[in-house]
Design a protein around this nucleic acid. Sequence first.
DNA 1: ATAACATATCACCAATTGGTGATAAAAAAA
DNA 2: TTTTTTTATCACCAATTGGTGATATGTTAT
Lengths: 207, 207
Amino acid sequence: MEEETAAKSLKNKEKSKQKFLHAVEKILHTKGFSGLKVNDIARTAGLDKKLIYNYFGGKDGLIDEYIRSQDFWSNVKSESGGSLVNDGGKKFSKAMLLSQFDYIFKNKNIQKILLWGLVENRKSLKKLASDREENGARLFESITDPYFEENAKRYRAIIALLISGIYYLDIYANTNDCTFCGLDLKSVAGRSEIENAISFLIDKTYE
Amino acid sequence: MEEETAAKSLKNKEKSKQKFLHAVEKILHTKGFSGLKVNDIARTAGLDKKLIYNYFGGKDGLIDEYIRSQDFWSNVKSESGGSLVNDGGKKFSKAMLLSQFDYIFKNKNIQKILLWGLVENRKSLKKLASDREENGARLFESITDPYFEENAKRYRAIIALLISGIYYLDIYANTNDCTFCGLDLKSVAGRSEIENAISFLIDKTYE
DNA sequence: ATAACATATCACCAATTGGTGATAAAAAAA
DNA sequence: TTTTTTTATCACCAATTGGTGATATGTTAT
């Protein structure tokens, strides 16, 4: 057993595992999840594919470990402190939606992962969805539910529509040259129209 | 050349082509677009795969012809006549969104096609998107743009968010057991919350 | 040094992929 | 009928897929 030395030796298990995880990321980014073949992954990592079976138990194990290694909702985790108590979460909701709209647009990997979760039944992908749910539950239960009282569920439905709309439009923008409802979702003009609409709808919801 | 007779003979080109198109539909429905392999398609159709190359020029030709054969936006094509002139398209917009929410939820094939358009770059899929755009353009330009005047683009952005939200939520509901924002999108209760939210947001938009 | 072990490579496997030329079988034309 | 054309099947191909046992190479301990 090597005691935490052997960091830069030619044969290093941890370093090799990282190479495989990076390879998954790279292929996911360039070819999408349908391009994730063991042979390609090994070639991209510059290592033998046998190691994928030795280290991760197979392709699925590697992919699951990659997905688990990502912390996709870190950008939305409530900064909790702040002035979001007395306005029923209005400022926070608006800021969260707008930041998601921008973050997902720029992060092609999360776009691929979101799509993946709609296409394939993979446990680690379901985990991501339930993580997001758990995360959001805290916001709803502690802030908006008490504020909206009997309309609490309608507020959740509105947020659901906006979040999912943001997801779809950002993904659409990156895989389609075409407009959506006549708006160019790649241009700053088109995107600020969406941002205005989000802002407008949240305002109206809190009216 | 056979002159339009030979309808029910054992060897019938048109009938065979239909068998292939049906096979594509069936596989798309059961396995999704990643399961569309020539061998599978031929086996499902009960015919030799060589015919796919003879009749459609290959797998891509067959798939393109299948996509073209679908008229996905027929359910939303403006019934044009009616009382939608004097309210700025409010009633029509609301009805259209609610009907889309229900139609896409029930039609798994259009879900798969919508997803496909986000994953793969296929000409015939782009065509569907641009068809939808063309269709919507008529509504916007003739009715809502004049009504909302300087806010016309914000209205388009709102509809874009709602439509794409509807797409995403319907697809999500069918591939995920998980809730979305705490709402069960498969239950009538959860779905009517979304419907209420759509209705509410349109009302507020026309206020 | 050498033995033991961890790390990595190689050659090979069966199954599946998309694709094609030769041929059989049915229908239509002569 | 025979001939010709259309329709369909078959056997085969090269490339790629996921996967594994045997082996080599580097690292550590004795």
